[in-house]
Design a protein around this nucleic acid. Structure first.
Lengths: 226, 226
DNA sequence: TCACAATTGAAAACAAAATTACATCTTTGT
DNA sequence: ACAAAGATGTAATTTTGTTTTCAATTGTGA
């Protein structure tokens, strides 16, 4: 688990880093807001520990930017001397996941970091799979399995199938598919979608009895059991 | 977003429920540990608010069981008067995601629940349907269902029926229909609308007793229960 | 009953989707 | 760096299904 620690006071930063490392975390230190922001947007951290009062950009601001502009999905633990409800609420509004007032006992910090790390681990963990009927799409292995049988898909096929599964039981039209799978936002009469549907069908439907990909004439395609 | 609130004191429970509901949450109350445990394992909640001190099974125990046996992936917010670091750590160890000491301001609770709910990021799945009498039009599946029976419609038929349902209990004339379903704004002398009404009738009225599509001679058509 | 309005069936015209062959680009192994 | 294999797209063709028109027929209201 990676932790980014944005804290200007060297003694506190060092103390936290040492403690977390003893508990199995990898800790990256940033001593001012700009560097913190920079690191956070370049790399993926599981947890970001963020001091509210910092030279350069302040903590609230960093938090907002990380959530809104950079869209990091790290857990953010806000760290500060200000302990009032209002600041706490401001912190959560800015997108913080948790809040800890100084001074704090290290055990307390560790418990919170553990909790955040765990809540992230769970998100990434719950076997990253999508499914319809007996078809499973493994998002980690980037592969499909139907009736227990592995099916090799090319990248485009995979993403197309992923989009279909994410929208199972809903008719999706070609434009929607072009936008979401091909990133094409204007209609330049192509029939790639049709062609790829054929590819997919050959792999995931034809060899098995029950077909999952249905075409709805004049509307689009529908992924559905039966 | 669904919240399960496990709290024995009726006044506190009511106060929280009311506040959360005003903020768009659906709240289920449990007034003792056993019922809470039962509900939590039967249903899927986004957030569980859990009082530590409860009649029946205590909060820590519930938390542990939920995580270990039932393996719920709800976010758990522990709520308690005990505010010591030790209890806090025990709480996190038992699998809580956050911790809030009583007494608390409601804004504070809300901020934490919001944060937990956000971290779960579940998107709702509203059922996209229109209906008159026993006829349902499923906008996702792009299909009609009457008396529980699926009816296949072509694109034009579907959009025509959709227009009729959206204007149920109102006579719509042919021109209106041509404009809204066919995008034809001038026309003289086509009878497509009439033809398609016949198609629709054959599919959605004829096979069932009660007819829904009524013609109002000289005026247009009317979709209505009676 | 007459005149107009609405319905129906069948065929023609049209449009959408599937299929196929092929050209171009990418990746991989040697 | 090269050849071979694989992936991606395009375009033409075939197949399938939908939409529209038209004329014959039936229904409706004064």
């Amino acid at each position: 688990m990676n932790v980014l620690l944005i804290e200007d006071e060297a003694s506190i930063s060092g103390f936290i880093k040492k403690g977390l490392e003893e508990n199995g975390y990898e800790v990256m230190q940033a001593f001012d807001g700009d560097i913190g922001l920079h690191l956070a947007s370049r790399n993926q951290y599981d947890v970001i520990i963020l001091d509210l009062i910092l030279p350069g950009v302040n903590g609230l601001e960093i938090c907002k930017r990380l959530r809104q502009k950079v869209q990091v999905d790290s857990r953010i633990l806000m760290l500060t001397a200000l302990n009032e409800t209002d600041d706490l609420v401001k912190g959560f509004d800015a997108g913080a996941d948790d809040y800890l007032g100084k001074p704090f006992k290290f055990r307390e910090l560790l418990a919170r970091v553990n909790s955040l790390a765990r809540s992230r681990g769970r998100k990434a963990n719950p076997i990253n799979q999508l499914a319809v009927a007996d078809l499973i799409l493994d998002l980690d292995l980037k592969t499909a399995i139907r009736a227990g049988q592995q099916i090799k898909l090319t990248a485009k096929e995979f993403y197309l199938l992923q989009y279909l599964i994410q929208n199972k039981n809903r008719v999706v039209n070609r434009m929607e598919i072009l936008e979401n799978v091909w990133n094409v936002h204007f209609d330049l009469g192509t029939n790639v979608v049709d062609v790829y549907m054929a590819y997919l069908r050959k792999k995931i439907d034809k060899p098995f009895g029950q077909k999952l990909i249905h075409t709805v004439v004049g509307m689009g395609y529908l992924l559905k059991a039966s």
